[in-house]
Every structure is written in structure tokens, then in C-alpha cells.
Computed example of a mutant assay.
Amino acid sequence: MRSILQNNNRTVVYEGASDWLKSWSFEAAVNLSQFPLMHGVTRRFGGVSKGCFSSFNLGLHVEDEIEDVWENRKRLAKHLGVTPDVLTCGQQVHGLGVTEVTKADIGKGAFAFDAAIPNSDAIFTRLKEVPLLLMVADCVPVLLYDAAHEAVALAHAGWRGTIGHISVLTLEAMHSAYGTEPEHCYAYLGPSIGPKSFEVEESLADTFCMAKAGLKRLVTYHRRPGASVMTPHIDLKGFIADDLLNWGVPSSHITVSATDSMTNAGCYSHRRDHGHTGRMAMFAKLIKRR
């Protein structure tokens, strides 16, 4: 893979350098490259899916042709150096379920959404060479890495997961399981709907404001094209980053992607595409030291 774009030295986009990865790309956090960890968030091109799912759709629950999704997942697995049957997913239900991935869970959800780990919008593990996958198309994908214990987690934060503090719940679960401490943690908030794109009702804006009374610019007002009035917009990534800071994660350890999935043509966007779209995947695999 080779780097083609860098944003403020915080995130970098890689594209394929071989025939089978032609046009395939993903975004990653620069400060995680120092660790025995493969990670990133896929972009929408470089696969075989068709129509509104074109082309690197990795979601099995969006009415795409299953064989096309399997082929796309096979390509991702090849990049990760594994067979597709060990790709491991949680069943994302916009809840707050957090589950540790054990040996018995390896490969759950690899080929069918119904076979994924139930009620798990966040999954974490210390198992090496076991790729975790998380599907997104506007919601915030959150990667959490514990450098002291070599543990990794992926959390799915839509507005419900965000206001429910799923990132902190995940860190607390890792603390209980492994002894994770905030000073050893790194976080990457990947491509997702941006603060100028996530328009909401006043009632939801008020709920977010009450939850973070001291956080400035969590809710801002913008006039979208064609609208006659200013409407509230929420900064989901800002809310999550503040949660992580409050838990004690150092600010220098937190990478927030500048990529807005709704305005970037290289991303799937549930809102922009009115629900008829594919899914990008955040992936993370702990590398076994030789």
C-alpha cells in the first residue's frame, strides 16, 4: 500500500499498489502505526458491488448481493493476511452492548449478519491475528487501543451510542477485563458525518446540550442549501472526544478524522443516500510478535 493523502499529520489515506487492490483505499490514524496493529476505515471504491452499493460494500444487512459482499470481504481479508472465515463482527443494533471477543467468537458474523455476536455495538479483544470489523455509513467508528496490554476495541457510535457514552463503557469493560488505564490508551474516531452535516431536531440538540453543558460548539446552527432557516447540527466526534478526555485519555493520544462521510464522495452515507447505500468497515487486527 502507498500513502496518497495526509491530513494535518493525524490521518492518512492509503491506496492499493497491486492489481487485486486497484482503487481500494482506507484511512488510518498516524499515531497508531507505531504499534503491532493493523487498522483503518475502508472507502467505498475498489470492490464488486453494484448500483447504490457500488462498490466496496462490506455490510451484509443492506440488501446487497451476498456473493458480492463476500468477495469484498475476501479482498479485505487478503489485505489483513487472514482467511475470510476469521473476520469477527458484532451485531450492531444502535445499543450500548459491549462484548469481549474470545476464541469461541472468532469468525462470528463473517458470512452472515444473523451469525454475528448478538447485541454488540462494541467488541474488544487481546487475541492476536483476529480481525474485528465494524460497519458504518455516517455513525462514528471508534477504535480504542490499550498499548500496555495490547488490547483493541471497536465501538459503533450513532447519536444513541454517543449520548449513551459507548466509548467510555467500552474502556470500562477493558479495564475490568485487562486492567486498562487511560494513560495507556489511544483512540481513533474515523470518517463519519461531520458537525456541519448532522442536522437534528431542536429537542435532540437540547438533549445533547444538557449532557455536555460545558462543551462549547457541540451544537451549532447552519442553513443547509435550499433551506430558509438555520437549524441545529451536532458534533458527534466532539462529544466522543470529550468523553475520552474526561476518562483520562491524553489529548495527544486522540485522533479525530476530518473526513465527513456525508460530503465525501469516497464514503457511504446513509443520510445523503436516503438509506439506500452500502457500509464502510473499520477494521483492527492485533499482530502477533515474531
Rank of each mutant, 00 (worst) to 15 (best):
residue 7 N to F: 10
residue 9 N to F: 11
residue 21 L to C: 07
residue 29 A to P: 10
residue 31 N to S: 01
residue 34 Q to I: 03
residue 36 P to N: 12
residue 37 L to K: 14
residue 39 H to C: 09
residue 39 H to Y: 10
residue 40 G to I: 04
residue 44 R to N: 05
residue 46 G to S: 08
residue 51 G to H: 06
residue 55 S to M: 03
residue 61 H to D: 15
residue 63 E to W: 01
residue 64 D to I: 00
residue 67 E to R: 14
residue 74 K to W: 09
residue 76 L to Q: 11
residue 81 G to A: 04
residue 81 G to R: 02
residue 92 Q to K: 11
residue 93 V to I: 13
residue 104 A to V: 02
residue 104 A to N: 15
residue 111 F to K: 09
residue 117 I to T: 12
residue 117 I to V: 14
residue 129 E to K: 10
residue 130 V to I: 12
residue 132 L to E: 00
residue 133 L to G: 12
residue 134 L to K: 07
residue 135 M to A: 12
residue 140 V to T: 15
residue 144 L to G: 12
residue 153 A to E: 12
residue 159 W to P: 04
residue 160 R to I: 02
residue 161 G to L: 11
residue 163 I to F: 00
residue 167 S to D: 00
residue 169 L to N: 14
residue 171 L to R: 09
residue 178 Y to N: 00
residue 182 P to K: 04
residue 183 E to M: 11
residue 188 Y to C: 03
residue 195 P to I: 01
residue 199 E to H: 08
residue 201 E to S: 11
residue 205 A to Y: 03
residue 210 M to D: 07
residue 214 G to T: 10
residue 215 L to Q: 15
residue 218 L to E: 07
residue 221 Y to H: 02
residue 222 H to A: 03
residue 228 S to Y: 05
residue 240 I to N: 12
residue 241 A to Q: 13
residue 247 W to S: 08
residue 253 H to V: 08
residue 258 A to E: 13
residue 258 A to S: 08
residue 262 M to E: 11
residue 272 R to Q: 11
residue 273 D to Y: 06
residue 274 H to I: 01
residue 281 A to E: 05
residue 282 M to Q: 15
residue 283 F to R: 03
residue 284 A to D: 11
residue 288 K to P: 00
residue 289 R to P: 01
residue 289 R to C: 09
